[in-house]
């Protein structure tokens, strides 16, 4: 049997092209390789950055002796709770301010003002209001992650083609249905972009709030390590933060690809 003839005219591709399998891991693995090789050949001295295997040892030590798992879970709970509140608040505020002129005039201004005040500068105030316990930490993380969610969801929502609203009006549906079937799906790409920023922000917030009187958490572990000059433990903490961020971003991107199949974009 001869192969079927396939002669085509093919245009030069301007988009990024087909997906590479496991492409997501290429960058991080390369980074790890550079680190390992650099340490092995003495290019990176241990005083600058602990070698990966020493970090592994420190990791095992922390895991067995100092309840690393408990610290990781405590941090995840803090970041996750703050992120969840922030995402909810950001979305609700974006929808209200995107759909009503009154809502916009009440909400949008304060949010823009809040944006220009670094949340970290507000921590002393929050400590005065909420004490130095869990509430202050969750509130800070929620506020930090709310902003990118609000800005991007609001932007996505305002970008929805007005003709879809017109269609919805002729179908005589209610506000609730309009929000559920037109506004939220239309603003979803913006929301997910905001979520990616928010995940990073929530980790940033986590690093900072855990330095305040925490009795558990990765930040607490690092504060102790700093006091005792344990560089390897510091690097364990940094790696954990990095893995958090990387995995969270990967999850959001995967979700993005699953729920936005209706889009035909360069992303393919």
């Amino acid at each position: 049997m001869t192969a079927a003839v396939d002669t085509r005219v093919v245009r030069r591709r301007l988009g990024p092209g087909r997906r590479i399998r496991l492409a997501f891991w290429v960058g991080p693995v390369l980074l790890l390789a550079v680190w390992a090789l650099g340490s092995a050949f003495g290019v990176i001295s241990p005083a600058i950055l602990t070698a990966p295997w020493d970090v592994l040892t420190a990791f095992r030590d922390q895991w067995v002796e100092h309840d690393l798992l408990g610290n990781v879970l405590a941090s995840l709970a803090r970041a996750g709770l703050g992120l969840a509140f922030g995402a909810l608040a950001g979305t609700v505020l974006a929808v209200v301010s995107g759909l009503s002129r009154w809502g916009e005039s009440l909400i949008d201004g304060p949010i823009q003002i809040k944006r220009s005040v670094p949340t970290l500068a507000l921590i002393p105030l929050f400590i005065a209001w909420f004490g130095i316990g869990q509430e202050m930490k969750v509130v800070t993380i929620a506020l930090i992650s709310m902003i990118p969610i609000y800005v991007n969801t609001h932007n996505g929502l305002r970008g929805i083609d007005g003709r879809y609203a017109e269609l919805a009006e002729t179908l005589a549906i209610g506000r609730g249905e309009f929000v559920r079937h037109v506004v939220l799906p239309g603003a979803l790409p913006g929301f997910l972009l905001g979520l990616r920023f928010a995940v990073t922000s929530s980790l940033l917030g986590l690093v900072v709030v855990e330095q305040y009187n925490a009795t558990s958490g990765v930040g607490h572990m690092m504060t102790l390590a700093e006091q005792y000059g344990q560089t390897d433990v510091l690097v364990v903490g940094l790696v954990i933060y990095g893995v958090f961020g990387f995995l969270a971003d990967a999850t959001v991107r995967l979700t993005e690809r699953k729920v936005l199949t209706w889009r035909r974009t360069l992303d393919g």
Binding site: R163, Y164, E166, L167, A168, T170, L171, A172, I173, E177, H181, V182, P185, G186, L188, W262, R263
Partner: peptide, 25 residues
């Protein structure tokens, strides 16, 4: 009371499959 409009552009919601678009509302 009940008026339907067929627009010049089809105006299907891009994030809904065809059947949900047809029965939307």
């Amino acid at each position: 009371d009940s008026v339907s409009v067929v627009f010049q552009d089809s105006r299907l919601l891009p994030w809904k499959r065809i059947l949900p678009n047809v029965v939307f509302g």
